[in-house]
Simulated scan of single mutants.
Amino acid sequence: MRLIKATLENKALLKNLYSFYLHDLSAYSSSLKPNSEGEFEFDSFEKIWERDGITPYLLKQNQEVIGFCLLLEPPFTKKVDYCINDLFIYNQFRGRGYAEEAIKTIFQEKQGSYYVCQLKNNKRAVGFWKKFYEQHHIAYEESIELEDGEEVLYQTFSSKNMIVR
């Protein structure tokens, strides 16, 4: 699995990936609805290409795109260095360790303090992150916040000096 920075050439591809990602999230949030063309849209999508501090990555297995990750850093992160804001893998590639591999690659390249968040009722995502922390002996602090009427779990931790294999 390779993690490749997305460029403007990948804009249409990333927009399509976001639609699938938001479709999946709509199972856990009543506020996510398709537009009049039947697509799920990320309302701040254009900011990815216009603002510093937002880095989109494509996840590739061989030459095939299997998902994406969106990494935030200052000025979007205030109390930590980085945020893994969104992480998506097509259904057919899930459960093969690709998400874990992508996260470990990011941690190796960008050591520092992080936060990640999941919708509280998205048990699959919550379970994935908790398992990741446990397997890699990551101490984290967790809080619950209400965002747009949804309960969101936030975990903060450090990747500094973490050994990732």
Rank of each mutant, 00 (worst) to 15 (best):
I48K: 00
V126R: 14
A27W: 13
C117S: 13
E147W: 00
F40D: 08
C69P: 03
E100W: 05
S26I: 02
P75M: 15
K104C: 09
G53M: 04
F68C: 07
K33A: 02
Y18V: 06
N85I: 00
C69W: 00
Q61F: 15
D43E: 14
C117V: 07
G112T: 08
S19P: 05
P75G: 14
Q92G: 12
S19M: 14
S44R: 09
A99N: 12
T55I: 04
Y18H: 07
K130P: 08
E147Y: 01
L14F: 14
F45I: 11
N62I: 00
P56K: 05
A125W: 12
Q135Y: 02
K131C: 11
H23T: 07
N62R: 01
N91Q: 12
Y57T: 14
T55D: 07
G67L: 04
L72E: 07
Y133F: 13
K110I: 13
F88S: 09
K33H: 06
E46T: 01
Q108K: 10
P75T: 12
C117E: 13
K47A: 10
L22C: 02
Q108A: 10
N122T: 13
S113I: 06
F20L: 10
Q111A: 14
R124C: 06
Y133G: 07
K123D: 03
L71P: 06
F107D: 03
R124E: 06
C83S: 15
K104M: 09
F128M: 02
F132A: 05
L22M: 10
K110F: 11
K79C: 08
C83G: 05
K131A: 15
P75Q: 15
R96W: 09
I144E: 15
T77R: 08
K123E: 02
K130G: 05
D43K: 06
S26V: 01
V126D: 14
A139Y: 00
Y28C: 12
A125D: 11
Y114H: 03
K130H: 12
I103E: 11
L87W: 07
L87M: 10
I84R: 03
A27N: 14
L25F: 07
G38F: 13
G112W: 04
